[in-house]
Structures are given as C-alpha cells and as structure tokens.
Design a protein around this nucleic acid. Sequence first.
DNA 1: GGCCCGATCGTCT
DNA 2: GACGATCGGGCCA
Length: 234
Amino acid sequence: MKAKQGLYMDLARDILAREVRPLPALTQLPPDFYQRTAIEVARDLLGKYCLIQRPGFPQTVCRIVETEAYMGVADKAANTSGGRRTPRTEILYGPGGGVFIYLTYGMYHCLNIVCNRPEIPEAALIRAVEPVQGLDAMCLARFGCTAVEIVEKKGPKTLLGLTNGPGKLCQALGLSRKDSDINLFNSFFHIAEEKPASDFQMVETTRIGVESAGEDALLPYRYYIAGNPFVSRL
DNA sequence: GGCCCGATCGTCT
DNA sequence: GACGATCGGGCCA
C-alpha cells in the first residue's frame, strides 16, 4: 500500500515537472493523415499531441495515449450505424480532420476526429491523454483548483484522473458539444507529431461501453500505449 | 409531444 | 463492484 502511494507521488512529481521541460519539436499533421480508415487513424494518433490555443489563453498541450475506431455505417457501435444521418452527425459525413463532440449520458462529452473521405462517416474517439503543458489550466477546468492543490487535498492519484477518460479529458480541455463542427486546420485545436517519434508498444483490444452493439462489441478497435498510467482501463 | 437510452464518472459499499 | 446522476437526440405516434 505504502509503496503504491509512493509510486503515485513519484508520478505526480513527474507530471508537475513536465511544466518546466521544453516542448518537443512539433509538426501539425496534414489533412491526408485523416483521409484514411478510422482504424488506421486511431492507431496512428497514439503518441500524437493535441494543442489548444484559445485567444487570450496560454497554450494547453497533451499527448494521446488511448483511442478507439468507429467504423461508420457498418459498425453497430457507431453514431452513424446503418447510415443514420442527422444535423448532429452531419460533420461525420464530411472530410477527415473534422471534430465531432457529443454529449453522452446527459453529462459528459466525447471527442472524436472525423476520418476518411466525405460520405464515409468514420471517426476516431480520443479516450485518454496525458498532460504535457498547461497543467494548472486543465486542473482548474476539471477540479477548480491548481495541480498542487488537488494533490494536497485529494492525494497524488487524483492527478491521474485529470485526463484518463473521454469525459474527463473534455472537461480538462474545456471542450463541449458547442465546439463540435470545427476542424483541425482552421480552429483553436490542432494535432501535431513529434519528430523523431517517441517509441512505444501498442495494445489492441475491445472497445469500452459498447455492449449493446452485439457482435461488433467484440471487434478489436481500441488502442492504447502499453504501460501508460493515463490509460482509462486495462 | 412523449419515451427511452447512452462511446461516463464519481461515490459508496 | 454496484449504482445513480442527468438530458439531448432519435424515433415513433
């Protein structure tokens, strides 16, 4: 028990220390990165960086550590299953690089990147990220206090809960369905890669929370960085 | 206009 | 591990 608390404290210290480390050199991903199947995009988004630059606010940066693929019309777990098409899901039918954010369970939001070509409504769900820069801004949005304060009040493990789930990361990044319909090339939200890319092992497994999709719940469309502490579930 | 349900999370046991 | 919160959207009448 005590050893575990120590591990969490070490992790918390590492997360806090990121603030003072320089950012790696980042290059924005081009549109054609997203003009591929959601499976390819979801896998390749692991290790990439989300950058949020709202006018008048400091930049927030985090690294993607867990994703899922939603394969459009044929996928019973997808919002567009069976070709469903409504004003809400219209952006999914647009070109790759769009941003689709929807309200789930009446309380939380899920961030999706539109994939593939127009009329093929595939998407990559971003399920977990790790904070890289702007930690206090994220903590303020999610917990209402600074990182140091939340560690003091609730313990170091709470800091892992900052962005280790789809609803949590939207809250930390201040994203909601009001931001749906933007795209990655003309808005405050970008995704970039680090060169040279960092090395990691990928785990491929079944998606979360899609039991009602029957057989499609068994598809191996969830991907995460092995051993990363911000992955939502093992 | 009404009804049902969810790509989740936090709290409690 | 179990459960309740909470509400917009999709679908049917």
